[in-house]
């Protein structure tokens, strides 16, 4: 079985008096093609988990393997490169640039990837077609509805062919009906074989996922976990 994410005794402590242990030592495996929801109230350690999974922060202890790459050994450029090519981010507030068209917004995903300039626009258009926005290529995000904006953001995450799609409260800014459309799109992507991790506090959102893990006070607990994604500590097989 292939794993995309493998956290081995990963913890994160923020220095201070007293130091804050935002994430207690955690083991978590996400297999290829899984759709996992990470749920928890605010202040539970969700953001820390998002930082760590998204390679935007490094663990205080433990090792994070992404696609079997030991990310603790990477230089900043390599971490950014892995982030760019293996992780697609989707945010609550979309983060589209207002002064650029939808295609340009999607093309932004490849700006930090050397040698990607040829065919960049074609790939961006294909990604937009994949999320059903092939007819709104050259419009400003300001003219799009909330659901359409989030779909542009998903297209931007997909264009890099990620191993992992990390979504942070993806429906938080949308009404129920539009949120449902986005979740349906996630279901479709999951069926197509994409690995998804959705971080949310919303039970309706997490209910769509194959697996759920709950974070509370920095401790990760399995819920609806039928494949042993949470292992006893130290059980990782060294490859």
């Amino acid at each position: 079985m292939n794993t995309v994410v493998d956290l081995d005794q990963v913890s994160r402590t923020f220095p201070g008096t007293p130091p804050v242990e935002a994430l207690k030592p955690t083991n978590l495996t996400i297999h290829t093609g899984q759709y996992i929801a990470i749920v928890g109230p605010s202040g539970s350690g969700k953001s820390t988990m998002l930082h760590l999974l998204g390679l935007l922060d490094s663990p205080t202890s433990g090792t994070y393997y992404l696609d079997d790459i030991d990310t603790s050994t990477l230089s900043e450029k390599e971490r950014a490169g892995v982030r760019s090519s293996r992780i697609g981010f989707v945010f609550q507030s979309f983060h589209l640039l207002q002064h650029r068209t939808t295609v340009e917004n999607v093309m932004l995903a490849e700006v930090y990837r050397p040698g990607s300039s040829s065919g960049r626009e074609t790939r961006a258009i294909e990604a937009l077609e994949q999320v059903g926005l092939g007819h709104r290529l050259d419009v400003s995000p300001a003219t799009l509805s909330g659901g359409e904006r989030q779909r542009v953001a998903i297209a931007r995450a997909l264009v890099s062919k990620p191993s992992l799609l990390l979504a942070d409260e993806p429906t938080g800014n949308l009404d129920t009906a539009t949120g449902e459309q986005i979740l349906a799109l996630f279901d479709q992507l999951h069926q197509d074989g994409l690995t998804l991790a959705v971080i949310t506090h919303d039970d309706e959102v997490s209910a769509r996922a194959q697996r759920r893990v709950r974070i509370r006070d920095g401790i990760v607990k399995a819920e609806d976990d039928n494949d042993g994604g949470l292992r006893p500590s130290g059980s990782r097989v060294v490859r």
């Binding site: 900043e76 950014a80 981010f89 983060h95 640039l97 932004l108 995903a109 930090y112 931007r156």
Partner: peptide
Amino acid sequence: EIGLRRALGAT
């Protein structure tokens, strides 16, 4: 935008 760019692979 800065956060987005970092997430998209900017150092």
